[in-house]
C-alpha cells in the first residue's frame, strides 16, 4: 500500500509540470510585458527595457521556463509578485488558510446534507419525500452562485444582522461563505447518492440481509450504503477539490482574502507570476485530493484495496490455502 501511495505521489509531478507549462506558455504569448506592469503606467521605454533585462525576460522561452522550475526546486520560491514585490509563496501562504477553512467546512456541510437526502430519496423512491428532496437539492444547485451569495448577504447580514456582511474578522463571518459554497454541490451529491443507493438496493445481497431478519436500518446502512459509497466518494472528492481551490465569486462578494480572490485579482492586475503560482498551488490541491479519494476507495472497498496491493498479497494468499480445499 505504501508503495502505491509513493507511486501516486510521484505521478503527481508530471501533472503539475504540465499545468505550469500550459499556464506559463499562455502568459508568455500574451502581449503585455511583465516589466511594463512592474514599472507602472508612467514609465519610459528605456526603464521597461532595463527592467526586462534585470528580470531575465529577454531570454528565450525555454530558458525562462527552465529558470522558473529551477527556482522552485532549488530555492523553493515561486518568484516575486510584479505588483506587490513580495514573494508569491508568502502571499499564497497568507491567503490559503481562509480558502481551506471555507472549503473544508463547506464540503463537510454539503456531504452532511446531500448524503442523507439522497438516502432518503432512494429508500422512499417515488414518494413525496423523494420528490421534495430532489426539488430542494436541484433548486439550490440551479441558483447561480453570485445570486445565492447576494441573497444570503442581503437577508442574513443586512436585514437580520445575524452575520457580518463581509471580511474575515470573526468566526461568524465565515458562516455565510461556507453556506454559499456548500449549497451548490448538494444537488450533485444528493443525486449521485440516490442513484448509487437505488442500484445497490436492488442487489441480491440486500435481499440476503433482509432474509437474515436484520432491522431495516442495518440493511440500509451496513449493506446498501456501504456498497453505494464508491460513486458518492468520487463526487465528494471532486467537490472538496473544487471548494479548496477557492470559489472566486464567493470570495469576491464576501471580500475574503483567499486563493480564488488572489487568482482573480492577479489576472486583472496583469500580475502573471502570481497567477502562475496560484494555478500551481490549485493544481497541487486538486491532484492531491484525487489521490486521497483513491485511497479512500481502498478503505471502503476491499476489492480495490487488493488491486492496489497486488503482487505483494498474492504471495501471502497461497500460503493460507491448505491442501484438500479445492473449492
Amino acid at each position: 500500500m505504501l508503495r502505491y501511495i509513493l507511486k501516486r505521489l510521484l505521478m503527481m509531478i508530471p501533472v503539475l509540470v504540465g499545468v505550469v507549462v500550459v499556464v506559463f506558455t499562455i502568459n508568455y504569448f500574451t502581449s503585455i510585458s511583465p516589466a511594463a506592469v512592474i514599472c507602472g503606467s508612467m514609465a519610459t521605454d528605456e526603464q521597461i527595457a532595463a527592467k526586462e533585462q534585470e528580470l531575465g525576460l529577454d531570454k528565450p522561452y525555454l530558458v525562462q521556463i527552465g529558470t522558473y522550475f529551477f527556482n522552485i526546486i532549488t530555492k523553493g520560491t515561486l518568484g516575486d509578485s510584479y505588483i506587490y514585490k513580495t514573494p508569491v509563496l508568502d502571499m499564497i501562504a497568507s491567503r490559503l488558510p481562509n480558502t481551506i477553512r471555507i472549503g473544508l467546512c463547506a464540503s463537510v456541510l454539503s456531504a452532511m446534507i446531500g448524503i442523507p437526502l439522497g438516502i432518503l430519496a432512494a429508500v422512499k423512491q417515488n414518494s413525496s419525500l423523494d420528490y421534495a428532496s430532489t426539488f430542494l437539492a436541484i433548486l439550490t444547485g440551479a441558483i447561480p452562485s453570485f445570486c445565492l451569495c447576494l441573497l444570503l448577504q442581503l437577508l442574513f447580514a443586512m436585514k437580520l444582522h445575524w452575520f457580518p456582511i463581509s471580511g474575515v474578522k470573526t468566526w461568524q463571518s465565515y458562516i455565510l461563505p461556507i453556506v454559499s459554497v456548500a449549497l451548490m454541490p448538494v444537488a450533485m451529491t444528493m443525486r449521485m447518492t440516490r442513484s448509487a443507493m437505488l442500484e445497490a438496493i436492488r442487489q441480491d445481497y440486500v435481499r440476503t440481509a433482509r432474509a437474515k431478519g436484520l432491522p431495516e436500518k442495518t440493511v440500509i446502512w451496513n449493506h446498501t450504503l456501504k456498497n453505494a459509497l464508491i460513486p458518492i466518494i468520487t463526487v465528494i472528492g471532486m467537490n472538496i477539490g473544487i471548494s479548496l481551490t477557492g470559489s472566486i465569486i464567493v470570495e469576491t462578494i464576501f471580500n475574503i482574502p483567499g486563493l480564488g480572490f488572489l487568482m482573480n485579482s492577479s489576472i486583472s492586475q496583469k500580475d502573471f507570476i502570481t497567477t502562475q503560482g496560484c494555478v500551481l498551488v490549485a493544481a497541487f490541491i486538486m491532484t492531491f485530493m484525487t489521490l486521497l479519494t483513491d485511497l479512500v476507495y481502498a478503505v471502503v472497498d476491499p476489492r480495490i484495496k487488493s488491486q492496489y496491493t497486488k503482487g505483494k498479497k498474492a504471495g501471502k494468499k497461497s500460503k493460507l490455502i491448505k491442501g484438500g480445499d479445492a473449492a
Binding site: L150, Q153, L154, A157, M158, H161, I165, S166, G167, T252, I253, F254, N255, F261, S265
Partner: peptide, 17 residues
C-alpha cells in the same frame, strides 16, 4: 477597509460600517 466588490462595499456602508 478594502473591499473590491462595490455591491458589498455599499452594503457595508448602508449598515453603518
Amino acid at each position: 477597509s478594502c473591499v473590491t466588490e462595490e455591491t458589498t462595499r455599499m452594503l457595508e456602508f448602508e449598515s453603518g460600517e
